[in-house]
């Protein structure tokens, strides 16, 4: 009898418990903190599902950067009065929502239990393609993201640009072009500065390491970029560096570098390998790493930009 099943069950119960807390907590900020804890545990579940790539992304983006975003928002809105968002739902509404939620969850659980066995899988095809038009990469997920489903990945980077612009566009007219408000207080604590000075360089090395091994092992541009983004945000919180002006050409170039290089490489496909978004087999790996390097840059810049928010009139 192995201990593992008990571990899994404990993890599952904890996660559901925290999810219930996130929904049920009365205080807004308590709910947010519950969600951050929930995100941490979710990373463990992904490891148990043999998905270290996803676990890393979840840890960095789903729990880390999202956590900072939500904590900031929760703290700023926390002072607001409880009832201001609208009247509390009535009993009928609660019953309706509960019944609908139960129905959907129950049906979903039932359907998951009867998924076909053996499960269909593209893993064999992905393995076969790795010798063909694919990548010759040791990490099949990187191969999927940059080669087989490269089109999705490029469009997702365009989505990130739109999200950044969308966040900026929420700002005031007269602030346009300025930098977002600083992430830290005016006189940061010594401990903050010390931590950032120690953490950021180490983190940058780790981020690049995770990007670099991503070709053959879990990791890649997403995960490495998210870690770099977190390090930049830590530096900004300690006021070692400030959020850049949103009209800075360099910032905008960095934001579009990933999708732009991806798009150009995709367009060059017909010349190189006879098809859009195809890469010649002999050079696939260097080309993919080249594209990934720019994606790393774009992600590392886009995530902090999304958290930093719209330009602020104060920082002229």
């Amino acid at each position: 009898m192995s201990v593992l099943p008990f571990l899994d069950v404990a993890l599952a119960l904890l996660i559901v418990g925290l999810a219930v807390w996130t929904i049920a907590a009365r205080v807004l900020f308590a709910s947010v903190v519950g969600y951050v804890a929930y995100g941490l545990l979710l990373a463990l579940v992904w490891v148990r599902l043999y998905a270290p790539d996803v676990a890393l992304t979840e840890a960095a983006v789903g729990s880390g950067v999202t956590g900072v975003l939500l904590i900031t928002a929760g703290k700023r809105l926390g002072a607001a009065r409880a009832g201001e968002a609208g009247p509390a739902p009535g009993l009928a509404q609660k019953l309706f929502a509960g019944a609908l939620a139960l129905l959907v969850a129950g049906a979903l659980a039932a359907v998951i239990l009867i998924l076909p066995d053996p499960a269909p899988s593209l893993a064999p095809q992905a393995a076969a393609a790795a010798d063909g038009p694919g990548a010759g990469l040791g990490n099949p997920i990187t191969a999927v993201l940059i080669s087989y489903r490269s089109f999705d990945t490029m469009l997702e980077k365009v989505v990130l640009i739109l999200a950044v612009l969308g966040v900026w566009s929420v700002g005031a007219d007269k602030a346009w072009g300025a930098a977002p408000a600083p992430l830290g207080q005016r006189n940061p604590y010594g401990a903050s500065v010390f931590l950032a000075q120690m953490l950021a360089p180490v983190g940058a090395v780790i981020g690049v390491h995770i990007f670099w091994v991503g070709a053959d092992a879990p990791g890649g541009a997403f995960q490495g970029g998210a870690l770099l983004a977190a390090m930049w945000m830590i530096a900004m919180m300690a006021r070692i560096t400030e959020p850049p002006r949103i009209d800075a050409r360099r910032l905008r170039l960095a934001l579009v570098a990933g999708p732009a290089v991806f798009l150009i490489a995709g367009l060059a496909g017909p010349l190189m390998a006879g098809s859009f978004f195809a890469f010649p087999h002999a050079f696939a790996k260097p080309i993919i790493l080249f594209i990934e390097a720019f994606m790393l840059l774009s992600i590392a810049v886009a995530l902090p930009a999304l958290v930093a928010g719209p330009p602020s009139g104060r920082s002229e």
């Binding site: 880390g64 956590g67 900072v68 931590l195 919180m237």
Partner: peptide, 8 residues
């Protein structure tokens, strides 16, 4: 990360 943001 989270704690730092919070203390800020």
């Amino acid at each position: 990360f989270a704690t730092m943001a919070f203390v800020n």
